[in-house]
Computed example of a mutant assay.
Amino acid sequence: MSTNFSLPDVSDPMERHPKAPAPGDPFRLHHDLCHGCGVNAPGGLHVTVYAGEGFTTTAEMKVEEWMLGGPGVIHGGVLTAAFDEVLGTTPLIIGVPVVTGHLEVDFLKPIPIGSTLHFEAEVAAKERRKVFVRAVARLDDSDEPVATASAIFIEIDLRKHYAKYYDSASQSRL
């Protein structure tokens, strides 16, 4: 397997952001209709990401019938979207808003419909505007990974990045 994910030789110094949620507390939503975290997103994943210790986060997602891919198991694209949500939220622990630059997922075992996925993620390094994040997903109370992911995110200025799409009357919280 080829990979574009390799940590830099030296990471920029990182500190937990003073406004990051306390361990165990959830991150607030992007907006109510976000496909990944939005509580009002029709057909959304409804993933809630919680701050962990240091540069880590956790999340859970119920694998529902509409997420069906192969018979009885989650669709790989749905799992990838869930990883994107978890991994993309994790850099907020260091106060860095990001967009996805590169994401790779290793599908290790089938994930049955009706199960609950438990994610653990961490910011592994930062190099200028690049933030390197990795995660693992497990089923229910198992210690055995069913999937892993790694990603490189690019730090952005939210207002500049979304300026042409931002509507002050919308629910967006830029």
Rank of each mutant, 00 (worst) to 15 (best):
S115L: 12
D106W: 00
V136P: 01
S172G: 12
E120D: 12
A81Y: 06
V86G: 03
G76Y: 06
L92V: 06
S170M: 03
Y162E: 02
E85S: 07
V96N: 10
V123Y: 03
K126R: 13
L92T: 06
T116E: 12
P97N: 13
P112G: 11
G72W: 11
F132S: 10
V131W: 03
I113C: 12
G69V: 15
K160I: 02
V131A: 02
T90D: 06
P112N: 11
Y166K: 03
K164F: 04
I93D: 07
K130Q: 09
E120V: 14
A121C: 10
A124M: 11
T148F: 02
S170Q: 04
G95E: 05
D106N: 14
Y166N: 03
L174I: 04
H118R: 10
P110R: 03
S168G: 15
L87C: 07
E85H: 00
L87A: 11
L139I: 04
A151V: 02
T148Q: 01
G101M: 04
D84R: 08
V86F: 00
F119H: 04
R134V: 06
P112C: 10
G69H: 07
F107Q: 10
K164L: 12
L79A: 03
S168F: 06
P112E: 12
V96C: 14
L87T: 09
T148R: 12
E144Y: 05
E64A: 13
P91W: 06
L87N: 09
Y166P: 00
I111V: 11
P145L: 02
L108N: 09
A151M: 05
V98A: 03
K126T: 12
A149N: 04
V105C: 08
E127D: 14
S142D: 07
A169S: 10
L117D: 02
V131I: 08
A82N: 03
F132E: 04
R129S: 15
K164M: 06
I93M: 13
T90E: 04
G95M: 07
L174M: 11
E85F: 00
G101R: 05
S168D: 13
E155S: 09
V98R: 03
M67N: 12
E64W: 10
R134C: 15
H75R: 08
P145S: 01
G88S: 06
V123T: 13
V136W: 09
R129I: 08
L174S: 00
V98G: 01
G77T: 14
T80I: 00
A149P: 10
S142G: 05
R129V: 04
L117N: 13
K109N: 13
A151R: 01
S150N: 07
P91I: 08
S170R: 01
F119E: 13
E104D: 10
L103C: 08
G72C: 14
A151S: 11
I154M: 02
S150G: 09
V98H: 01
I113R: 14
A147F: 02
Y165F: 11
G69Y: 07
V86M: 06
I152Y: 04
K160G: 02
L174A: 06
V73C: 10
D167K: 09
E65C: 05
T80N: 10
D84N: 01
P91V: 05
V133D: 01
I113T: 09
G95L: 09
